[in-house]
Design a protein around this nucleic acid. Structure first.
Length: 424
RNA sequence: GGAGGAAUGGCAGAGUGGUCGAAUGCGGCGGUCUUGAAAACCGUUGAGGGUCACACCUCCGGGGGUUCGAAUCCCUCUUCCUCCGCCA
C-alpha cells in the first residue's frame, strides 16, 4: 500500500511510473484523492461535533456540581442531538475511510526508475550472468529421471501421501537438500544475517502486512477453522516480526535469514513446465530479509544481489540475473532482480531467487517505522530475497553435475553432505 | 478441555464515572554543575488524524453497549498468568 502522502504530493509522477506496469492509474489516483478529500472533510465535521459534545459534557458536570439540575437537563437534550449527528457522521466517515482503504489496496507499488517498461517475462532485462553451461555426457537425463534412477526423490509416493507437487526426498536426495539448507544458512549468517525460526502458519493480519492479502488469497493454503494461512514464503512471518514496530535509526539495518518450507497452491499450472522439481506445492527455501533506512535501501538491494550471486558462484552453477520489467514486476515490489539457474538437461532457465526492494509499500501496511533522534517516526524500507529456493537449485545440481556414471557434488557442499558423488 | 485472575505510555506501576493522554519510579533526550565522567538538580519525553502553524479530534488489549460524560460499569473476542486434565 502506497503511503497516502506520496499520492497527494506526487500523483503525476506516480501515474507515469505505473504506466510501466501497463496500468493506466490516472482514474484510480483521481478516485483516491477524491476519497481522501471526502474523508478529511467528514473527519473535520465529526471532530467539530465531538468537540462541541465534549464541551457540553463538561458544562453538565459543572452544573450538577453546583446543583443546577434543570439547566443540566436542558444541556442533556442538546447533547443528545450532537450524539445523533456524530453517529451519522461517524458512519459516513467509516464508509469513506473503508472505500479509501480498498482503493489503496488496489494500487501496486511504483516501479523504480531503472525498471524497464515491458509486458511480460520476455521483456526482462539480462543484467548479469556467470558460470559456464556444462557439456553433458551422452544419454544425459532431466533431474526427475536422475532422481528416480538414483532413488533420491519419489514423486509418486508424495502423490499417494498428499498429492502432486509434494515430493518425498530420500537417502542422498534428502541429505543433499539438508546440506543445501545448512550451507545457505551458514553463508547468510556469515554475511551478517541473524538466523530466525518462525511460524509456518500466519494470521490474516500478517497476510495483509506483506501484501498476500487481500488479492493473492488464492495462492495460499488456508486453515479456515482457525483463520490461519500456510506461509507461501518465510518473507511473510519474518517481515511481520516488525509489524507495528518503531525502531530507532541506529538499529538499522536489520538483517534476518530464515529457513522454512513454503506452501503454494499454484492453481491452474500444470503440464510439462511443472514436471519434477520445476514447480511444487511445498518446497524449501532460505530467505533473507532486511529492514533499511530509505536512503540506504537501494544500496542494500545491490548488496543482496551480490550475496546471492556469491551463493551461485560457490555452487558453480551457470546463472543469469534479470531485472524484471514493469509487466512482470510483483504487485508489492518497486524493483526486483531474478536469479535463474541453467537447467542443462531441460535446456531452460529456472528461477531460484527473487530479490526485491519494496520501499515503503510493505512498511506502510505493517506500520514499520524508524525514528531519527526525537523526530517523528518515518516509514522504513523492507527488502527480501531468496538465498536460495531449494528445489530448482537441486535440479540444477543434478542435471549440471551429472557425468557418465552418476552425479558429482559441488565441492563446497561436500563438508555438509559427507559424500562427493551419487552413484547407484 | 475445565476453574479462577489479569491486560494502562519503552519498562514497572497508580488510577473504579467528570477537570485523565493518564500520578509516581525507572529508562531515553536536553541542560546546570565538572578538566572529563558519575552523582545530584532542572527541564523534556507515546501514537495517529487535522492545520501554514495553532486549535481541535481519536487511541488505556480488539469489537460492541450503558451514560450528557468511560481507563473506570456491562457484553463479547483475543492474549497472558495460576490451578486441574491431556500431551510431543
Amino acid at each position: 500500500m502506497l503511503p497516502l502522502q506520496l499520492l497527494r504530493d506526487e500523483s503525476e509522477r506516480i501515474a507515469q511510473a505505473l504506466a510501466k506496469r501497463g496500468l493506466d492509474a490516472g482514474p484510480m489516483l483521481g478516485e483516491i484523492l477524491e476519497l481522501d478529500r471526502e474523508r478529511r472533510k467528514l473527519q473535520a465535521e465529526l471532530d467539530e461535533t465531538l468537540a462541541e459534545a465534549n464541551r457540553k459534557s463538561k458544562e453538565i458536570g459543572e452544573l450538577f456540581k453546583t446543583g443546577k439540575a434543570a439547566q443540566a437537563q436542558e444541556l442533556k437534550e442538546e447533547s443528545g442531538r450532537l450524539k445523533e449527528r456524530s453517529k451519522t457522521l461517524g458512519e459516513a466517515l467509516n464508509q469513506a475511510a473503508e472505500a479509501l482503504q480498498e482503493a489503496l489496496y488496489q494500487l501496486p507499488n511504483v516501479p523504480h526508475q531503472s525498471v524497464p517498461a515491458g509486458q511480460d517475462e520476455t521483456d526482462n532485462e539480462v543484467v548479469g550472468q556467470g558460470g559456464t553451461k556444462p557439456v553433458l555426457p551422452e544419454g544425459a537425463l532431466p533431474h526427475w529421471e536422475l532422481a528416480g534412477k538414483h532413488d533420491l526423490i519419489d514423486f509418486e509416493l508424495g502423490v499417494k501421501v498428499t498429492g502432486a507437487g509434494f515430493p518425498v526426498y530420500k537417502g542422498k536426495g534428502a541429505r543433499l537438500q539438508r546440506a543445501l539448507i545448512q550451507f545457505f544458512l551458514d553463508r547468510n549468517t556469515a554475511a551478517g544475517y541473524t538466523e530466525v525460526q518462525v511460524p509456518h502458519l500466519v494470521n490474516a493480519d500478517s497476510g495483509y502486512g506483506t501484501g498476500q492479502l487481500p488479492d493473492k488469497e488464492g495462492q495460499m493454503y488456508e486453515v479456515q477453522v482457525d483463520g490461519l494461512y500456510l506461509i507461501p514464503t518465510a518473507e511473510v512471518p519474518v517481515t511481520n516480526l516488525f509489524r507495528d514496530v518503531i525502531l530507532s535509526a541506529d538499529q538499522l539495518p536489520v538483517c534476518y535469514t530464515a529457513y522454512s518450507p513454503c506452501f503454494r497452491r499454484e492453481a491452474g499450472s500444470y503440464g510439462a513446465h511443472v514436471r519434477g522439481l520445476n514447480r511444487l506445492h511445498q518446497f524449501d527455501k532460505v530467505e533473507i530479509v532486511r529492514v533499511e533506512h530509505p536512503e540506504a535501501s537501494y544500496k542494500a538491494l545491490e548488496t543482496m544481489v551480490a550475496h546471492v550471486k556469491g551463493l551461485l558462484e560457490a555452487l558453480q552453477l551457470p546463472y543469469r540475473i534479470l531485472r524484471l520489467c514493469g509487466g512482470d514486476l510483483g504487485f508489492t515490489s518497486a524493483l526486483t532482480y531474478d536469479f535463474e539457474v541453467w537447467s542443462a538437461a531441460q535446456e531452460r532457465w529456472l528461477e531460484v531467487s527473487s530479490v526485491s526492494n519494496f520501499e515503503a509499500f510493505q512498511a506502510n501496511r505493517l506500520k514499520l517505522r524508524y525514528r531519527e533522534g526525537n523526530d517523528k517516526p518515518q516509514l522504513a524500507h523492507t527488502l527480501n530475497g531468496s538465498a536460495l529456493a531449494l528445489p530448482r537449485v537441486l535440479a540444477g545440481i543434478l542435471e549440471n553435475y551429472q557425468d557418465e556414471t552418476g552425479i558429482r557434488i559441488p565441492e563446497v557442499l561436500v563438508p555438509y553432505t559427507g559424500f562427493d558423488r551419487i552413484d547407484s
